[in-house]
Amino acid sequence: MDYFLELFIGGLTRGSIYALIALGYTMVYGIIELINFAHGEIYMIGAFTALIVATILTMSGMSGVSVLVLAFLVAVLYSSCYGFTVEKIAYKPLRGASRLSPLISAIGMSIFLQNYVMLAQTSDFLPFPNLLPELPFMEPYAHIMGSTEFIIVTTTAVVMILLTILIKFTKIGKAMRATAQDRNMAMLVGVNVNRVISTTFIIGSALAAVGGVLIASHIGRINFYIGFIAGIKAFTAAVLGGIGSIPGAVLGSLILGWTESFATGYVSSDYEDVFAFALLVLILIFRPSGLLGRSTTQKV
């Protein structure tokens, strides 16, 4: 039973990590039907920013929670700026173009950002300090759920709740839902669609930065390539849950996390990815728009 619980918690942590990134994919897709391939890179930039800030602050003598909070804030701000700028440079000029053009632009942006970080920083793996505090009350359960895992899962849960409140109960949330339903109609009734899109990118990037800092602290190392691998998995999770749907992204991420964890635990980690993607194929056969996705009629 203990073993099951360990795997369950491991899968939950993994799923929470995927969810933080998957949300950015799914929100952007929901609004402008674009798969933002540069999203994984925003996550990576968030982690790098936190590393740089944390290193500087630690060297200047600060410690503990203040470093964590400041590193988090700067990473979130910086990544949001990146998200905002990427949208303005790479996607906005292509808003009227066919759906393929911004997709290619996104891939280009992804490659550009990866290489930019590689050249500006390094191509080696860098150690990432464990910014997350050790929680003494988790210590007896460390073999099932360590403090890092606990913090990741809790943070993700809090972020989800905040995001739901934002979308359900605020004015900008309403505007986002309206834009997602029908962009032209939203424009006609006076919604500033460009602003809504920018906000979406900012929120998505901020979430990715939170994910970046948490995950980098968890695995303790980063390099310029981490965004690509995490991005692919998160994208899979978003598709699994139904791309465009926010609860879907979370559900898809958790299911993906658990599948991988249990497949590793009870079968073999050699087949971790096989199980994950076999599940994706199965779900897409029976529910082509994902678990919670809306099936829309494609206009041809």
Binding site: Y3, L7, R14, E149, I219, S269
Partner: peptide, 15 residues
């Protein structure tokens, strides 16, 4: 066992 290079988390295999 083989592990997946570059995965975000190895807790399952560690367990």
């Amino acid at each position: 066992e083989g592990v997946t290079p570059g995965a975000v988390d190895y807790s399952a295999v560690v367990n």
